[in-house]
Design a protein around this nucleic acid. Sequence first.
DNA 1: TAGATTGTTAATCGATTAACAATC
DNA 2: TAGATTGTTAATCGATTAACAATC
Lengths: 217, 217
Amino acid sequence: MNEKRKYKTKSHAPEPTLKRLPGYLYFLEQVKEEGVLNISAPTIGKELDLDPTQVVKDLAVTGVKGKPRVGYNTYELIHALEDFLGFNKVNEAFLVGAGNLGSALMAYQEHQSLGLKILAAFDVDEAKIGQTIGGIHILEYNKLFHLSGRLNVKIGILTTPNHVAQEVAEDLVNCGIKAIWNFTSAKINLPKEIIVQNTSMSSYAAVLLRRLNDASL
Amino acid sequence: MNEKRKYKTKSHAPEPTLKRLPGYLYFLEQVKEEGVLNISAPTIGKELDLDPTQVVKDLAVTGVKGKPRVGYNTYELIHALEDFLGFNKVNEAFLVGAGNLGSALMAYQEHQSLGLKILAAFDVDEAKIGQTIGGIHILEYNKLFHLSGRLNVKIGILTTPNHVAQEVAEDLVNCGIKAIWNFTSAKINLPKEIIVQNTSMSSYAAVLLRRLNDASL
DNA sequence: TAGATTGTTAATCGATTAACAATC
DNA sequence: TAGATTGTTAATCGATTAACAATC
């Protein structure tokens, strides 16, 4: 056993739970500022529009224990969430494709804590190479192969045009990348041990537009 | 009945289905380029890693009918999807907060068809006001109230700092906005008839990081 | 002590997957 | 005709919600 965590965490948290956890973290950081030392699941649920039982179950994955009548220790909960999500350690990433969305993510990570540290960005566009955005250098794409040999980066952020997504993804895997955050619309096929997290803006646009059109019939 | 659609669509498509539809659309546009006139659900499923029955059920919401042994007409399917999602009509939007993410979305929409047309962006930062990104003017925040009176914009994109999200969201609602695409980490509370679509980058980061850490135990 | 809240087990709900008849 | 695929109905699976005992 090489488990180094402070809390006994659940091994496989459901994805919906995982997606809610950053919301709890953000809210708890706010109430901590206000000096709230303990907080109950019903209180959290009221604020975040969630069933109190849902909150209890979600928080249970972090391994934190609450006290009946009192709730959870705010400070302990924040640390357990950060620990569980890996937001408190440095998760190094490479980004490929310093276009609009890529540049935004580079600038974004400075302010929002996504738990990610983009070490370098890569692009084939001569005009972009050499620039610095959000403190991150944009390097020539070919440099990826050299740099990945020296560093041990596990996460690749894919913000290229759709038509090169598959090719770049394969390059990243050959460079030792274990997880790819795919912002393109392309479906990428990789060995099954590689984690691919698809984040398509158009999926959200689709849900929004449909709900709007449904409402205004 | 003022239903003007060409196809008999399902009234309430499940959200997971909605999120998959843009993926079908993107794939179908590709195969159309290759001159494929008909395509079957199993073929689509193989490419997109989805159960063929799932594909059949998903596509059924658009009202398109397929032929046994043949599949669906590519062209018809594309149009039905665009129609169902509202991607083929102009969905006008305002954007508030022309920071990193806001700028990216402004530049992004030029290339990616999200079915949205951002008419104008608003910010309080003097340095940003007057600039143009992706063909969209950044205006003084107060102009929002004048402009919304003349135009009938229903969608608001929220890319402000977290601490002003609630306030800006309320302003947008007062300006006649019916749906808000919230990119901030803040939970915003609005009248229940207003549609709020939360899109939190940290939720995706959370899933990615956890899956990566689970894998490398 | 009384009672609010945790934590767990059971019931419900909705989406995915399987089964199968209809059909081109 | 034979057989692959659609379209629908049933079974399964997983997440949410409800119920309730334990406890501080």
